[in-house]
Computed example of a mutant assay.
Amino acid sequence: MKLLGVKSFQSIPQNKSVKTKSYAQENQEYYESIIKSNSFNFNDRFNICPNKSDLGDYGEFLTFKEIVRWSSNYSYNYKILRNLNIGTHCEIDLVWIHETGIYVFESKNISGLICGNENSNQWHQTLNNRLKKQLYNPIFQNNGHINALKRILGNNYFYCSIIVFSERCVLDEIPSNTHSRIITKRNYLKSKLTEKITSEQSKLSIAQIEALYRKLLPYTYASQDIKQKHSDYINKKYGNKDNNDDDVDLPF
């Protein structure tokens, strides 16, 4: 799923009286249309994707959907980009450019018991009382994503790391949230966003949001060669990312 820019509404003749849509309303309608046209919607009632090879993409879609649904209750200005490839070593799940800052999402659509501390290179996933596998510290991972964005956009913005786990997991002995970091399960994402956004002041104008969006938009058009090189890099460094066997607790 590729997120494109919101198309500008055609200019309205002066003699017609119409109610102009706000920037936020235009964005809301555009992103809602993406949700409605996405094939993953068919599986929403299961809150899981039947094809285990699509678990990661499905988790990203659900996170994207939560953000758009949350935004419908507010009139904030924002833009969303998904799947940004910065070089071959950095693939960012989702970036939400909001009037209060730049929010960088890392989605972990896995189940089991998840534990890890702030400074450990590896966290652990345990399922059915047995160690299933290790996962690279998502704090380190998303900090790397934010640093990549800073090299493009600069340091003069508020960046917040948001790591979203599946509803099917249990988060145990993980680091606490901070001003610039949230670790949560997806079913708590809306409440965490409400708590975070309402505590922040607006920092970005519509023009700034648009400029940042346009600067990042080219990174969503990665070639298949770049995507393959990124996949090869991840597989070599962390193991086969495509061999996702997190289907022990699936209903099918």
Rank of each mutant, 00 (worst) to 15 (best):
L4Q: 10
I163C: 03
G87T: 11
I12G: 01
K227H: 03
F158V: 11
S22A: 08
K227L: 13
P175Y: 10
K192G: 00
P175R: 05
L127Y: 10
K108V: 04
R168G: 09
Q201N: 14
N137M: 04
E167R: 12
D249V: 01
V104G: 03
K19L: 12
Q134E: 14
G239K: 04
I183F: 04
F158W: 02
H89E: 15
K185A: 05
T20L: 13
D57L: 13
Y74K: 15
L94M: 15
R130P: 00
L149F: 11
I67R: 01
T100R: 13
I35Y: 06
L216F: 05
N235W: 02
Y78Q: 07
N244D: 15
H124Y: 12
K196L: 14
T220C: 12
S199W: 00
K150S: 07
E66A: 14
K2I: 14
S22K: 14
C160R: 12
K52H: 12
Y76T: 10
Q134S: 13
S199G: 03
L4I: 03
H179G: 00
K229E: 13
K21P: 01
S71Q: 13
L149D: 06
V248R: 07
C160N: 10
Q208R: 14
Q134H: 13
N235P: 03
N243V: 00
Y78V: 08
E118W: 01
K236V: 00
P251G: 08
Y76H: 15
N109L: 04
N43M: 03
V18R: 12
T220F: 09
N143K: 12
P251A: 08
G87Y: 09
G144P: 03
Y219V: 06
E195M: 06
L216T: 05
D242V: 01
K237R: 15
Y213L: 07
K2E: 11
S107H: 01
L4C: 04
I80Q: 01
I12W: 02
L135S: 03
F165K: 10
F40Q: 07
Y157T: 07
G144L: 08
Y157I: 10
Q141V: 08
K203V: 09
V170R: 12
N155D: 15
L113W: 15
S53L: 06
S202M: 06
D249L: 15
L193C: 07
N41R: 13
D44R: 09
I48K: 11
G112T: 02
L193G: 09
N77R: 13
I182D: 02
N83Y: 01
Y157V: 06
K36E: 14
L204W: 07
P175G: 07
